[in-house]
Design a protein around this nucleic acid. Structure first.
Length: 643
DNA sequence: GAGTCAATTCGAAGTCACAT
DNA sequence: ATGTGACTTCGAATTGACTC
């Protein structure tokens, strides 16, 4: 007799247990899945290690209500559900942290099996009070929106203005139900979600919907999650708001928006109450982006940017469509805060920026410093940072000796930032911006063998983060690498090319070294503001400190001063694109200099404070000198001296 | 010759699709 | 699921042609 049996009865179950004797696991609960006997299964996992276990509960892994009543599920589905309730999970394991509330695990399980998703994204529900300028921005925008329901508005606000929170406040105040946030830099999704989670989630009916890669470990809803949520709440009268976050690249890839992939149909199907374009200076204003935006049906559009040079120069916005909050505004507010006020000065924690600019030629060798005689005048060599840090095919610096000299000078001559122990202690974590990935790699190699800099952990946040082809180290997100390095090292140097220059916050950074020739004021200032994040800390004696000053070290004075001029003038409508009189331009620069002093080397190499007139005249003087030299290539001038 | 503008080149970042 | 490589897009800088 042949015995044929194709089926076996199984009982899918979810179980939860703790290991009370194991202190490492205190507060942690293991939640797993089995189709067999629970006790046996748990014993399999633990008996080798002689751990005592305490089974909390085990339940059928079966949904109890429609839409899939009677269907079974796996532990993954429940783990996913836990994520939405901010339950901490040990990465890559099935251990979850229920601090002292083991009952909560069962409680959540009971909710899960009946599709109760009412508490998705519980949030922290913190209260907040907008700073006066955030309030002003929201108020003005809301007023403009009421008058011009299909208009647009620009927040020309420096980094740290708090645009995410202010935007959320605007959303709540105007009761926009469907909001779409797009940006060219998906990495900043984190800060959007952080503020959402802290202040908005839980208190409102808004849900944060995003499938951005940078948020994959956070409790954000996918599009599908959101639709499930909406479908299961159709009978409720309350409105459900959604805040959807998309990257521009993703958006433009959609076939409905000019791309080639069949996705994101829902974006064009929705009429959005508000479209927010974050970092509105990047990747927008191109043909593709415009066509994509034209397909998006929306009422109001809000542009956010700290450096909208282009938009202002083009005159895209009129004066009543702009809210301005500049660095000078902020520092003025800091200075003028009423001491008598009951409230603590909210600007106190925002450091002042200081710009030190050096003549590179003075640092690398006598002969270059001498310059050449032209019409009886001493003229410096035009210096090109990109050329200076250029590399050959083998990944070595072309002017390796010169770069070594420069590193040496930087760490010995007392006017430079890394010259003494005291100075180095002030600048524990710095950000160095270079031009090319190869240069960053070469510099990393040099720094690591240099006696002074070897005490620093050098983080390479450029390219794919690998030093060579053979280096098969796990590729981590640059941001995580930097954070970890700062956690575990006393001193760090982060070398970067383009990464981490916009939108990220590393509070520990106290200085930025500009080693690249960037001439775009937007990029330059974005990078410069990386050092201006508030930060406070405690030393090992228990004394508290706060970051008071942030520094920018620059090695191309003429370029820098020109950028400074643009920074002072081209972010305000009156003086954009060379507008306004010389006096008003100087006035703007003078005001900015009050809060953002520039210290530069003079002819004798002494460090002096630059005044407003010099900012305007020095670049022209240097430019005139370049004209004298004719069309000679910088590399031609440099080569004989460095080789 | 000086200044302006378009074309070209290059590197970086992000996404998609495929493989394991 | 996770990682790798190809592909796409964009911005900046450089180059070269054109105009005055």
């Amino acid at each position: 007799m042949v015995k044929i049996q194709t089926s076996k009865e199984i009982t899918p179950k979810i179980y939860a247990y703790t290991t009370p004797k194991n202190l490492d696991n205190e507060g942690w609960i293991k939640i797993g899945y089995t189709e067999r006997d629970v006790k046996k299964r748990i014993k399999e996992q633990t008996h080798t290690a002689q751990v005592t276990t305490d089974i909390l509960w085990s339940e059928k892994a079966e949904y109890l209500t429609e839409p899939d009543k009677g269907e079974t599920f796996k532990d993954h589905d429940f783990h996913h559900f836990l994520k939405f309730h901010d339950v901490e999970r040990r990465p890559k394991t099935e251990w979850f942290y229920f601090n002292g509330e083991p009952d909560r695990a069962k409680h959540l399980f009971d909710k899960f099996v009946v599709h109760d998703v009412s508490d998705y994204q519980p949030g922290q529900g913190q209260d907040y009070v907008l700073r006066q300028e955030q309030e002003a921005a929201v108020e003005q925008t809301a007023a403009y929106m009421a008058e011009n329901p299909s208009g647009k508005y620009l927040w020309n606000a420096k980094p740290r203005f708090g645009k995410t929170l202010a935007t959320y406040d605007l959303i709540c105040r105007t009761q926009a139900q469907s909001v779409l946030i797009v940006t060219n830099r998906p990495a900043i999704a984190n800060s959007w979600f952080d503020d959402f989670n802290k202040f908005i989630a839980g208190k409102t009916n808004y849900k944060f919907v995003s499938e951005s890669d940078s948020l994959k470990d956070r409790p954000v809803l996918s599009r599908k999650d959101y639709m499930d949520y909406v479908l299961s709440h159709l009978d409720e009268t309350e409105e459900m708001g959604q805040i959807a976050f998309l990257s521009l690249q993703d958006l433009k890839g959609s076939i409905f928006l000019g791309g080639r992939h069949n996705k994101l149909k829902w974006v064009t199907d929705t009429v959005w109450d508000l479209l927010v374009i974050d970092e509105a200076h990047e990747g927008v204003d191109t043909f593709k982006t415009d066509t994509a935006f034209n397909q998006i049906k929306r009422k109001f559009t809000l542009h956010l940017s700290g450096t909208p040079f282009k938009a202002l120069a083009k005159g895209d916005f009129s004066a009543d469509q702009i809210f301005n909050w500049s660095y000078a505004d902020e520092q003025k507010a800091k200075l003028n805060w009423e001491r008598e006020s009951e409230k603590e000065n909210p600007y106190e924690s925002l450091p002042q920026l200081n710009l030190f600019t050096y003549q590179m030629s003075q640092m690398i060798g006598e002969r270059v410093a001498d310059g050449v005689q032209l019409d009886g005048e001493n003229v410096d060599y035009a210096f090109d940072l990109n050329e200076f840090f250029s590399t050959d095919e083998s990944g070595k610096f072309v002017y390796e000796q010169a770069v070594k000299n420069w590193l040496g000078t930087l760490s010995t001559n007392e006017k430079y930032p890394f010259s003494t122990k005291e100075l180095r202690n002030e600048l524990k974590h710095t950000f160095w911006l270079l031009d090319r990935v190869a240069s960053a790699k070469a510099l990393k190699a040099l720094l690591e063998e240099h006696p002074i800099y070897e005490n620093y952990k050098i983080v390479l946040a450029a390219g794919d983060g690998r030093m060579s082809e053979e280096d098969d180290r796990v590729k981590l997100k640059a941001l995580d690498v930097v954070r970890e390095a700062i956690q575990t090292n006393d001193k760090t140097i982060t070398l970067s090319v383009g990464q981490l220059t916009t939108g990220v916050t590393i509070p520990e950074w106290s200085a930025v070294l500009m080693l690249s020739n960037i001439k775009s004021p937007a990029l330059y200032m974005q990078a410069a503001f990386r050092a201006q994040n508030p930060h406070s800390w405690r030393d090992n004696k228990g004394n508290h400190y706060r970051k008071e000053n942030a520094y920018i070290f620059d090695f191309a004075p003429e370029r820098t001063l020109q950028l400074f001029d643009e920074f002072a003038n081209n972010l305000s409508l009156a003086t954009v694109s060379g507008g306004g009189t010389t006096t008003t331009r100087e006035e703007n620069i003078r005001e900015l200099l009050n809060f953002f002093p520039v210290i530069a080397e003079d002819h004798e190499g002494k460090m002096v404070k630059i005044d407003a007139k010099s900012v305007l005249t020095i670049p022209r003087q240097i430019k005139a000198k370049e004209v004298l030299k004719g069309t000679s290539k910088n590399s031609y001038l440099l080569s004989p001296y460095f080789k």
